[in-house]
Computed example of a mutant assay.
Amino acid sequence: MKTRRRRERRARARWVTALASLALTGGLVGGSFLAHGTDAPPPSAKPDRFVQATCTPIDSFERGSDSTRFGQLTFLGGCVLGTNSARFGGLSGVEVTDQGSRLVAITDRGVLVRANLVRDGAGRITALTRLRLDTLRTPDGRLLEPSDHHDLEGLALSPTQAFVSSERNHAIMPLIWPAGEGRDGAAPAVGPAIGLPPSLSRLGYNKGLEALALAPASGPLGPVLLAVAEQDPKDPGILPGAYLQEGLWNPFRLRRSDRYDATDAAFLPNGDLLLLERRFNLLDLIGMRLRRFPAETLKSGGVIEGDVLIEANANFQIDNMEGLSVHQDAQGRTILTLVSDNNFNGIQRSLLLEFRLNTR
């Protein structure tokens, strides 16, 4: 017990130091971090080809505990990601496809990350291979610059379409997909931004479109594109969202509580919505929460509460959790994959965590 308490104190001390350091350097704004730190290099015009990656295992989700069951989720494992490229980091959106064998992610700085996932006999991720980093391009062929996207945050893709979202300029852009697979030097491109409803186009400077998801065609909503903002500048108790159905945006409102902000969303196979939330401030230190919203409630017109699946703080192996993906493995189990944004600094980590959603 004493050993566990010492670990918890060390973890809390580490986050106090990290948050204080970032606050003093201007990195903490309204409870979230600016994406473009001065210590990170600008994106390169020449994409790296198959970057070397490391995947340092995380065997226990709760520090000092061997428990694997947390609420309705079972922790399967994870790792701390690293590469030999200075352009890797700032992971803000993720999708795992092909029954868990392929990873696609987006970074704050407009870099598309693609890799194969290697798993052991128990299904745990042990390595990333054929990792590739490509800076996205505009429709006219230019590399995306900060003035173009102002911090990419969300990624949503299906076998036939893909989208990315950005905050500050509050935009959703189609991603040309498949994106240059197998072609040397191919840089994926984004298309012109699609129109947004007023509830999503008038957001705060650094509190914009964080969560993006494509619903399954077989779900109650049908194949809609859904977006959720980090906060509502007019109402601190609301997370504004909307889904695009047959060319029309349908707004909805999720309850915001306990100083959590929305960071990503994903649909379950039955059409229910999962929302990833995080808090990262000097009062609470660090926190992560997952909530589940039945798809039908998004049509209710009221403020939707949702059910908490899991909540974690500094005593757990989390960081600035920003990306969420849902896939089904070869056994038909529903797997949740989460990634963290390290803000391109040496204090934080790029985490890759996986959980199984329990049926009962």
Rank of each mutant, 00 (worst) to 15 (best):
R63C: 05
A156V: 02
L157N: 07
V113P: 01
A115E: 04
T107Q: 14
R132F: 05
A105L: 05
D98K: 11
L155S: 00
V111I: 15
H170S: 02
S165I: 05
G82E: 09
G154K: 08
E153P: 02
S158G: 15
G110R: 06
S147M: 13
F75H: 08
G154Q: 11
R102C: 03
S85C: 07
R130E: 14
V94G: 00
H149S: 14
G93K: 01
T54P: 00
G93W: 00
D98P: 08
L155W: 00
I172F: 05
F88N: 05
I106L: 15
D66Q: 14
R142D: 05
G77D: 03
E62S: 13
G90S: 06
L131P: 07
M173N: 12
L103W: 04
F70L: 14
T68K: 15
R102E: 08
S85H: 04
E145H: 11
R142C: 01
T135W: 05
G90E: 01
S166E: 12
D108R: 03
I172H: 03
T129P: 05
F61Q: 08
N116P: 07
E153R: 00
F88G: 06
F70V: 09
L73G: 04
I125K: 02
P146F: 10
L128R: 02
V118P: 08
V80L: 07
A86T: 09
A162L: 10
R69M: 08
D140N: 12
A156Q: 05
I176N: 12
T107C: 08
Q161G: 10
P57S: 02
S147G: 13
Q72L: 12
D120E: 10
I176G: 12
A162K: 08
E62D: 11
T68L: 13
E153F: 07
L112H: 07
R130F: 08
R114N: 11
R114T: 15
V94Y: 00
F70N: 06
T107D: 09
D120R: 12
D140C: 06
G121H: 00
T138I: 09
G77F: 06
L175N: 02
Q52R: 14
L144W: 06
L73R: 00
A156F: 07
R137T: 14
G78I: 03
F163Y: 15
N116M: 09
T160M: 14
I125Q: 03
T126K: 10
C79G: 03
G123D: 06
A115P: 10
E167N: 05
S92W: 01
R102S: 07
T97M: 02
G82V: 09
